[in-house]
């Protein structure tokens, strides 16, 4: 009597299936979130209502539970969910379905014989939403939305190793906004932020999906270009330079013209470490600044 009440009041989905995988019990939580009443589903095969569960993995786990008394765990990370239910929390708008952590286990009769299995369903949507946000925050620059330096450094190492191993081309562009301090001093820091966003967005639009753009420092950005040799990287840098210079951004009613200087480098036999590659691009960027800004300089091979 008490347990029956708990079964229906607990904030967890509980389902009991028999050995033929027909539904025996379907608690109130499942009714609420699935929109399927216990009355209509009890006695029916679970697959009639949830045909996607009819897959080798789910069946294998059911058999292991019924035959061996195993417990089976369906983690959100790997499965996202077991039952396609509508997300219930306010975090749900990011997901098509409620994210679930599910457990399956054996239920025995008085003689210890396994006659049924239970599935518990826990709503973990909120946790997953927070987790995704944390992961994104860990990779992203808060202001511009492009990758941050931490992400870039990890990626640089990874890509450098890969391109060295397979002797594939790999290019890097370092860029720096010209006279950024003057923008800040003249128009204020809010305008400076606007300029940073404009430059990041313009570059992001012009690079390929496979390239990585990161904010490297204050007004410095860096692009990693897998499969791009020095010439391809130079051409892209030139397009980026023109793209930024052609466009305009505005702060309030003030129109601001922005230019950017670029330094380009690519992996070659003499470059042993990712740090060297980045340092060479940085040297080229310094040359571009010295030669008058708003230009692309390529580091010699």
């Amino acid at each position: 009597m008490i347990f029956e009440q708990i079964f229906n009041m607990i904030n967890v989905g509980l389902v009991v299936l028999d050995a033929d995988l027909r539904v025996r019990h379907w608690n109130r939580w499942m009714e609420l979130h699935s929109g399927i009443s216990a009355e209509s589903i009890v006695g029916e095969p679970i697959f009639s209502f949830y045909p996607d569960l009819n897959n080798p993995k789910f069946i294998r786990n059911c058999k292991a539970v019924l035959k061996f008394g195993n417990f089976a765990f369906f983690s959100q990370k790997l499965h996202s969910y077991l039952f396609p239910l509508k997300p219930a929390s306010s975090f749900g708008h990011k997901f098509n379905n409620m994210q679930q952590g599910c457990t399956m286990g054996p239920l025995r009769d008085q003689d210890n014989i396994i006659r049924h299995l239970y599935i518990s369903v826990q709503d973990v949507t909120e946790v997953v939403a927070y987790e995704q946000k944390l992961v994104a925050m860990n990779m992203q620059d808060g202001l511009t939305g492009v990758y941050n330096r931490r992400f870039l450094e990890g990626k640089l190492k990874e890509e450098f190793g890969r391109h060295k191993r397979y002797a594939r081309p790999f290019g890097v562009i370092m860029c720096d906004i010209d006279f950024f301090k003057k923008v800040n001093d003249t128009y204020g820091h809010q305008c400076g932020d606007q300029v940073l966003k404009y430059v990041a967005a313009t570059i992001q639009k012009l690079i390929r999906d496979t390239d990585y753009l990161a904010r490297y420092g204050g007004e410095e950005f860096c692009c990693l270009l897998p499969e791009a040799d020095l010439e391809a990287a130079r051409k892209l840098a030139e397009r980026l330079r023109q793209g930024v210079a052609r466009g305009k951004t505005s702060c309030g009613d003030q129109e601001v013209e922005v230019t950017v200087s670029f330094g380009v480098a690519a992996v070659g036999p003499a470059i042993e470490t990712p740090e060297t590659l980045l340092a060479l691009a940085d040297q080229a960027l310094y040359e571009a600044k010295r030669a008058g800004r708003n230009r692309v300089v390529v580091c010699p091979d």
Binding site: K57, R60, N61, A64, F68, G69, N70, F71, A72, F73
Partner: peptide
């Protein structure tokens, strides 16, 4: 999954 099944069995 295989680990879980094997250990359980």
């Amino acid at each position: 999954e295989v680990g879980n099944i094997l250990i359980g069995a």
